[in-house]
Design a binder for these strands. Structure first.
Lengths: 256, 256
DNA sequence: CCGACTTTGTGCATACGTTCACAAGCGGTA
DNA sequence: TACCGCTTGTGAACGTATGCACAAAGTCGG
């Protein structure tokens, strides 16, 4: 559980100037948590928060894994990236685990959010209670429609997208959410980037071009539907094959 | 490029009854496309549709990869799962590629959608033009609130969630979208499953329990935000490390 | 018809993520 | 204190996904 990377070989650690490797090493450690594990940690955190509210103080990897819908070995490995805070023979202290996951996910700082594009989806996002309650206060709303400007949505007034750069910089927005039509998305993205926003959550069905230092995640509803469609088709094919081979829909063998 | 799986060894193909292997083989072929590739195929499809509208008839892997934000080798490998429909020295015929990807993704059939939970998000989804235009007509809406029952949203009347089972079965809904509060999600899911819905897109922040024959995909906004938060934190750490090691924010070396 | 040039499709090596299986460590009990 | 049973943490094996680099296969100009 102790991180042993960099104990061997070239680790000389000159007091004056550490070797070039060491920079990479430290970066490595920060990068060391796999992307997939980060996503799951967020899920564990939600489950654990629920447990804590119900008065649960201790939980085993088996229980937590069940509640999070993963297998327990994966869960333990994921938690090992965070550090070893379990007690063998007992399990994990819920409170302790929550605070360590929050630290790793950077949730100890508040991350102000700006939502751009106050259509149906933008409205929903602006009113979505899950953001502020989890440490992501919505600090600004933007739309291109002048009629919307000044009208408050979910308690926050809408500003014009021409003011994105100044207002986002001013209110220290760190996460931008793009809920505009696809044609407008890249232009909006560029403004957010020039305002210093480093992370973008994109709901528009376009591939955004951004500098290397900006992180983009996309949520594409049409893509999600099409993935489901693929699975429907695959299932239908399998069922057809089974019937051809004398196996019925529920695995029942036909004409045995 | 021809699919050579199953050409060797045990392929005897008795005219009366094919060997047990062959069932697995065919299943294998359907399953053979990696999940990650399926998600990208949906993106390629969108880009290609846009190209087709602009009158582009032929496209190279390099161009398409650029537009889709992936590297060209990965793109070609993804397309090879679909089949080899490119021309060496030239590229791919846009129309041909579109129709083959649509076939693989099962988009040749219509997939009716039911949205459950007509709150802010449900409203947005019911009105979202991206669904019907891509072959996913919204066939039913449901909510627990009796005041909403009968009121049309986006042209479709809202029904009560007690009627999910009968109405979904009746209208042959194949994809259910859950946009309810978390407490209601599992119960709604159970009803959808008992109506024969095989695929579910879940926006509620809970882990749904479903039978093996039902496919669930989840979109969790809080999780997306927390992943972004992690990256903000990681960047901040890296920047700090760089400064300590005499490298400034833009990679500029301090005091050289 | 031939040769130069372009672009695909894929074998191979590498990186990444998942799962298994078990030693190490801790609490409880006598 | 010494033992026993339980659960963590992790080394190692496995499987999947990614990227490189190049032969194969096509077009086009002469």
């Amino acid at each position: 559980m102790v991180d042993r990377r960099g104990e061997g070989d070239e680790v000389v650690t000159t007091t004056s100037k550490p070797p070039a490797e060491s920079v990479a090493e430290v970066r490595e450690r920060a990068r060391a948590i796999p992307e997939a594990a980060v996503a799951r940690l967020a899920v564990y955190l939600r489950v654990l928060s629920g447990m804590a509210e119900q008065g649960v103080t201790t939980i085993s990897s088996e229980e937590l894994a069940g509640a999070a819908g993963v297998n327990s070995a994966k869960l333990r490995k994921d938690l090992s990236y965070v550090g070893s805070y379990g007690t063998r023979g007992v399990g994990y202290d819920v409170e302790v685990l929550v605070s360590h996951i929050e630290r790793i996910l950077g949730l100890t700082r508040k991350h102000s959010v700006a939502v751009v594009g106050i259509g149906n989806l933008g409205h929903a996002l602006a009113n979505y209670g899950g953001f502020p309650s989890r440490g992501f206060p919505v600090a600004a709303l933007f739309d291109i429609d002048p009629d919307l400007t000044g009208v408050p949505v979910g308690g926050i007034p809408v500003d014009h997208i021409d003011d994105i750069t100044s207002i986002c910089a001013d209110r220290e927005v760190s996460i931008g959410v793009i809920a505009t039509p696809p044609q407008a998305a890249q232009a909006v993205c560029d403004r957010l980037v020039s305002a210093g926003v480093q992370c973008i959550l994109n709901f528009a069905p376009v591939v955004l071009q951004v500098p290397d230092n900006v992180e983009v995640r996309k949520v594409d509803l049409a893509v999600e539907m099409q993935i489901l469609s693929f699975h429907v088709a695959r299932r239908a094919d399998e069922a057809a094959v089974d019937v051809v081979n004398g196996v019925g829909v529920d695995g029942v063998v036909i004409r045995p």
